[in-house]
Design a protein around this nucleic acid. Sequence first.
DNA 1: CTGAAAGCGCTTACAG
DNA 2: CTGAAAGCGCTTACAG
Lengths: 336, 336
Amino acid sequence: MKKNVTMKDIADQIGVSSVTVSKALNDKDGVSDKLKDKIKRLADEMGYRYNTMAKSMKNGMSYNIGIIIPERFSGGISQSVYFRAYQRITTALEDYGYYGIMNILSNEDEEALNLPKIYQEKKVDGFIFLGQLTSEYIKVVKEIDMPIVFLDFYDEHDEIDSVITDNFYGAYDITNYLIAQGHQEIGYVGNLYSTSSIQDRFLGYYKSLLEHQIKLNDEFIINDRDEKGKFIEFNLPEKLPTAFVCNCDQVAHELVNKLNDIGYRVPEDFSVVGFDNDIYATITNPQLTTVDVDVDEMVKQAVRLIVRKIQGKNKRYGRTSVKGNIIKRNSVKKLG
Amino acid sequence: MKKNVTMKDIADQIGVSSVTVSKALNDKDGVSDKLKDKIKRLADEMGYRYNTMAKSMKNGMSYNIGIIIPERFSGGISQSVYFRAYQRITTALEDYGYYGIMNILSNEDEEALNLPKIYQEKKVDGFIFLGQLTSEYIKVVKEIDMPIVFLDFYDEHDEIDSVITDNFYGAYDITNYLIAQGHQEIGYVGNLYSTSSIQDRFLGYYKSLLEHQIKLNDEFIINDRDEKGKFIEFNLPEKLPTAFVCNCDQVAHELVNKLNDIGYRVPEDFSVVGFDNDIYATITNPQLTTVDVDVDEMVKQAVRLIVRKIQGKNKRYGRTSVKGNIIKRNSVKKLG
DNA sequence: CTGAAAGCGCTTACAG
DNA sequence: CTGAAAGCGCTTACAG
């Protein structure tokens, strides 16, 4: 291990002051080009590496962003999506000179309303929370005196900036698509009281029905999970609709299986659409027509937002929603 | 945003020096219990948060560890395993007071032999590299004057400490198991020149054959990928063995499909075993008997290692291999 | 038990 | 164009 090289070392070697070295290395004005060159060359030669911590000390910025993912999203199906999102976040942050420190928020810490240790230790300048938090925890998060962005969920009181997929218009679009295929009796599969995104998707579906003057039939709203998000057996109504808008691909997958079990075929007997375009969309037979969530764009927005908030005295930007796209596959039949 | 509270603020408020506050807050000797209590209470009240950066500045430690994952492992099948590993790493690091900063090493940067920016900027005190690097890049990594641990691969020249799954004995064990089930003609599926882990698994398989005095039949070594790791069509020999040891579950999955395609059934006609116990082991029909890799234990070892190296002047520890376990499922038939 | 002094490596604002 | 001084928030060694 070679010894630590500092700006002072370089300065001494050349016979200038460390101020000049600092200016040269940071490409600031006030150093002649010739000297600047000389300093840079020597820095390279001596194996100088910039000490970010000293700068941090000076201006009170850590140049780190905490990326907090609640434990329950760190496994199962959300895992791959969230990992990809996390990767993109770190990569995008780097372009702004920031680094992402990931933290899994354990169920216990969330329950006990404990803020992440990286907050207590001033390791970060801001936070991106990735994945729905309990409303109790959101309240605590609001007390944090740092820029915060919610990604893939939002605060119902809208006090914290968020970037989400456009649940409402995604569901609206895909319901419109079903109607365009001739369907008039369309069910919605999802618990309306579970999460805000499931609710918003429902409302998008409902808007489409309203616009087409199709009456909402309560019987066609099929519950898929309890309030805690745990999946339950479907309780299908006597009379079935001809198409189902499912709140996510996984549930659409389950529904197709269920329909198969009781002797029906998709899309011949029933059309089924999902949401998310995750792995369940392609492992289902037939593959699902669904709404693709534009994770990359969401990440881009979230990163831009947090950086802007850090640099610009934490202004409010509200909710940013990113539009998804319908991916047409084989789970929808054209009627009539 | 409330103003930044420092130790000095607390000290002034009470009428002591910041040295005393520092001692109190760090539970060091030299402060009366009564005063210590008072200081702690006031710190809480004033919303004091410890400034890690100042400490870092003092002792030159960042308390961050860089976790570097080559881009090609950040997607596909390795993704979920590596994400899980990364999560465990960050969690385990926290117990030691360290944080993990993940960095995807892009193919271009690896090709161009660029070291991660977090190294250049002294953001980290050490590195864990997760996933096989090119040998050219390994050479560059060796120049880094910081503790480094390789996780899930190793340097063939053994100059860098590593934690790997016990490829050799895993393959040895599972081949023994096949032999115990009455198999004598056993093939190995994998490119012997591709990665060290595939090679080691082959050697474990070979050791088992040797011990049972079964001659290695070159015809039974079936290539599954080119030197760059890209999968290729199997080229099955005329005469087939009764069982196959595959270098990973994914390839075992492909092999089962291939055998089905040409009219054979597993395990009735041929027994097939995999390695890794990843998702391919369970989506294959029949589910695969395979070797489970103990990722959690590997992570634990890697984290302990890197922390020890940082704290203890970067000693050499060599290669740590963590034993996996055979998971018996339905892809093996007992002969005779 | 308590604290004044020095220093970690940089940058900012100012003077020359 | 160049640099002396002060300061970011803490800790370490030393003195009392």
